[in-house]
Amino acid sequence: MELPFHSLLYRYFFFAWLFMDVNQCDLFARAAAWHHNKGQARWLPRYIKRYLVSGALLFAIGWLIEHSSPVASAFFYVPGVMSLPMATVAGVAWIGLRVWD
């Protein structure tokens, strides 16, 4: 089954689809979801790298076109700067899933 482009783009940049909800009623379902999430944490460093590389590229593009059009550079600066909090959230989640038992 081939996914549409927008789904692939979403999965490339956002990692929430990898994880299961741990807030379930059954104790065994919670334990299974927690175990699944700990296994899926191995993908988080890849997302961190994607955020940092894409943020640096967007920031560089914004810097390059800032002199010709300051308003247009904001379209590159804002997502470039927002990649840092996304990388931080992914890093905290990765550390939490690796350390917390």
Score class of each variant (00 low, 15 high):
4 P>I: 02
74 A>M: 15
9 L>P: 00
32 A>D: 13
1 M>K: 07
32 A>R: 08
95 I>Q: 13
48 I>P: 01
90 A>M: 08
22 V>F: 00
20 M>P: 01
53 V>C: 07
47 Y>D: 03
98 R>Q: 09
49 K>I: 13
17 W>T: 10
57 L>I: 10
1 M>R: 08
78 V>K: 12
27 L>M: 12
77 Y>K: 05
13 F>S: 06
42 R>E: 10
93 A>G: 08
91 G>P: 02
58 L>I: 05
56 A>Y: 06
90 A>D: 02
43 W>R: 10
19 F>A: 07
7 S>W: 00
89 V>W: 10
97 L>V: 05
21 D>I: 00
84 L>R: 05
60 A>S: 15
88 T>H: 02
86 M>Y: 10
83 S>N: 11
98 R>D: 05
54 S>D: 03
47 Y>G: 01
100 W>G: 01
95 I>F: 13
24 Q>D: 00
62 G>V: 02
1 M>G: 09
78 V>R: 13
17 W>E: 12
54 S>N: 12
44 L>N: 02
74 A>Y: 10
36 H>W: 14
54 S>C: 11
101 D>I: 11
5 F>S: 00
16 A>L: 11
63 W>S: 15
22 V>W: 00
51 Y>L: 07
23 N>L: 06
96 G>N: 14
10 Y>F: 07
75 F>G: 11
95 I>H: 14
54 S>Y: 01
89 V>C: 12
49 K>G: 14
63 W>H: 14
41 A>T: 01
5 F>Y: 04
2 E>R: 07
21 D>G: 03
84 L>C: 09
70 P>I: 00
21 D>T: 02
40 Q>F: 01
59 F>A: 11
95 I>E: 10
49 K>T: 14
91 G>M: 07
20 M>D: 11
87 A>S: 12
36 H>M: 12
96 G>K: 10
9 L>T: 02
62 G>N: 06
33 A>Q: 04
33 A>K: 03
84 L>T: 03
19 F>V: 09
34 W>D: 11
15 F>A: 03
